[in-house]
């Protein structure tokens, strides 16, 4: 089993590495991810949200719903762990 796992993992690695040659170079400034939406965030965030930290701006503003989701995840995790571990108590 372990041998098979190792083999599989190695082959996947080789294939992935081969496939990733289409990825932009590390630190390439001209990737689509930079040129498309990211730039807009950087340009607009200050006037839209008034925060200097663009990450915070996105977190709280543009993608605030993700953050709500994140909070929900935490909430869920909390309730889940409670459900699993706690015996007795009110929950």
């Amino acid at each position: 089993m372990k041998r098979l796992a190792f083999l599989t993992v190695i082959i996947i690695g080789i294939l992935l590495l081969w496939a990733e040659s289409d990825l932009p170079r590390f630190g390439d400034p001209d990737t689509p991810s930079r040129t498309y939406v990211a730039g807009e965030y950087l340009e607009r965030s200050l006037e839209d949200t008034g925060t200097e930290n663009v990450v915070t701006a996105i977190l709280a503003g543009y993608r605030g719903f993700d953050t709500l989701g994140e909070l929900t995840v935490v909430f869920t995790g909390f309730v889940a762990v409670t459900l699993l571990i706690r015996r007795g108590g009110r929950l």
């Binding site: 496939a19 990733e20 289409d22 990825l23 990737t31 689509p32 930079r34 498309y36 939406v37």
Partner: peptide
């Protein structure tokens, strides 16, 4: 995201249309 720079599904669909050859998209 690397290939298109967007996360919106509709947007992705339209931007992917030119990238079908990319192994990135295949992966």
């Amino acid at each position: 995201y690397v290939a298109t720079g967007t996360l919106n599904m509709a947007d992705l669909a339209s931007r992917l249309a030119t990238l079908y050859d990319s192994t990135l998209v295949h992966t």
